[in-house]
Design a protein around this nucleic acid. Structure first.
Lengths: 202, 202, 202, 202
DNA sequence: CATGAATGAGTGTTCATTCAT
DNA sequence: AATGAATGAACACTCATTCAT
């Protein structure tokens, strides 16, 4: 099982192209092979099976996605600024690759539980990034101290993801990175007016 | 095409059971028919085809889900309290029907774009509910006035949905309704400490 | 098994209509029942099964067809004139009922061997008519004496049938009865010029 | 879509065998594949679908049938002799392949209109052969000059086809090629005695 | 390394017929 | 006599994967 080489990457990229163009359920192995310019059987020299190929697509692309985000977060910025950077990077990177945004936001979600569990594994690195920002913020004393950090992480990721998915489903018709500011604002300050007496007691 | 009667409901319920137990891709029409105690062909007296059955499952179950939520929101409560009610109803109703929660949070998302488009139609009613709460809040002067209400809606739905999905993927191991308070708190007040000078400028 | 009554005939006629309009393979029992204005189950009070219905359609319609031809042949005409009458009656009757012509020439031929065997039984009466004309002609001394009468019958029926089928397949676009004369002429005198020395030796 | 190779021919031949043995409506793709010694899916490497396979069966077999007849007609014989050759070739070739005769005379006629339309296309080549013989005969002055050649063609084909069909339906019990002479004789000279005053006036 | 022909398991849907009312 | 809801057997076609070359 070769996991690198020029054909490995050609197949990965062909998979993204084919899935973005034809949709997940119309992305047969033979179609991906043709797009990559290799024989059907060659796919199986580089990937254990189709599921392995799809997970690898997500791995490779999300790996780069996460690394770039990690690099941007290495600054000495405050947690609040880091969160802003995270949202901006997320939206910018999706905007930089329309095909990839279709594949990750729409197509790869149509997979069975097993495949999505493996995709979830990859995502953990990204969720850890969010967790560390949250921890920083709590240590800095700017984020609510007794907050359930898992819930906070789910709010951040759920909001970013839902926003991105809506953008893709609306055919990328508007400027997603321009929403990073407002989204960040809402995550940090919530819906309620700051000056108001809006504290709720759960 | 009969759209009601005891068999109609038996088939809908059988579909939920089978999908929850075996997963979307292992839910053959014959399996659903057997679970419902009817012949395969009987399915087609009540539904145009398999897709129509699956959309109907979502329609029927989400219809009830949304109606119950709508009823709870008819009070004279403030927007902030209504939002709390919405989150609570969402989590309570999913908790009341484990099987349904598996079907809506995990299995029915594995469908093709066409089916998900139809599911999206049903969801619009729910998103409208959220929008009216947001509008109330802005009218009341408790929610940020110049907020992008679509983003706010995406934050609210994205957060609730992500929280619910995590709960289902963790095999319903913890008390979801207990999270309604903290989730609501975060949505309203954000991550930042109230007293702190946390205003961001986008 | 009631074999008569107003519904019996309504069903027979409905079958002809439906088959002519939708084609043999799109003529479900339920469609015929609807056209006849009766319940599906009622069909089975009058006919043993679908095959029995189709055979009955052919029986009833061809029965009338044959009887009318028989009546016209009761004259004291010569065999040659009787043959002319047979061809004329054949073409006239098909022209008088376009729907029936479609059903007998095109649609009912798409049936399995078993059904066509039963249809063949009905046709025997018609073939006997031809045989008696041939016998008359041989007795009169106008038809070749040592001719194989089965072959002659097959030539007559094959020619008439092929001519009629072509007419139906050409959407009844031309005047079929007008072809009775030329067809008769060819059957009686053959392709070769009379005066010529055209005798062949087999 | 491979249209040649040993498996292509094996599948064609298997289809003829299966259809002849089990009848058109009992000739499932899986049965044909088994008879051909290939997997079901292999059929679809060589044929677009089942209809394409059946049309191809007719094409291949009738193609050879027609070519052989065309070759025999390249002589300098008179039109009357050519007609004799045509009838003889027709009967001889059917006799040479009992299975094929069952398939073409009985089974392939049970198909829907669409398929028969495609079969009709192939038959046109054969009908053209008949037309050219008729034209030759009229040019030679041996066939009636003002004859409707389409009717003449229909008489010839209708007679041959009806004769062949009867032979197949009688389980090939008699010697079909032996009938070529009498059939030809009847087609050329008609039913009436040559010496008699049998001219009819239409 | 690479090929691509061959494999064969798996499933939504139709419709003739029945039978309780 | 008449109904029509219910039945359930039957089948063409796809596509991930293999393996001889």
């Amino acid at each position: 099982m070769k996991r690198k080489g020029p054909k490995y990457e050609k197949i990965i990229d062909a998979a993204v192209n084919v899935i973005a163009k034809h949709g997940y359920h119309q992305s047969q192995v033979s179609k991906i092979a043709k797009e990559a310019g290799v024989a059907d059987g060659t796919i199986y020299l580089y990937f254990k099976n189709k599921e392995d190929l799809l997970v690898s697509v997500f791995n490779e692309k999300m790996g780069t996605f996460i690394e770039k985000t990690e690099n941007e977060l290495k600054s000495n910025d405050s947690a609040i600024e880091k969160l802003k950077t995270l949202v901006e990077m997320h939206f910018k990177q999706l905007t930089a690759d329309f095909e990839l945004s279709i594949v990750t936001q729409l197509e790869l979600r149509q997979t069975n539980r097993q495949l999505r569990a493996k995709i979830g594994e990859v995502l953990k690195r990204y969720l850890n990034l969010i967790d560390s920002i949250l921890k920083d913020g709590m240590d800095e004393g700017v984020f609510v101290r007794d907050m359930d950090y898992r819930l906070a992480r789910q709010m951040i990721f759920g909001t970013i993801d839902e926003t991105a998915t809506n953008w893709v489903m609306n055919d990328h018709r508007y400027d997603l990175p321009a929403l990073a500011g407002p989204v960040h604002q809402m995550l940090v300050n919530g819906l309620a007016i700051r000056s108001a007496q809006t504290e709720t007691h759960s």
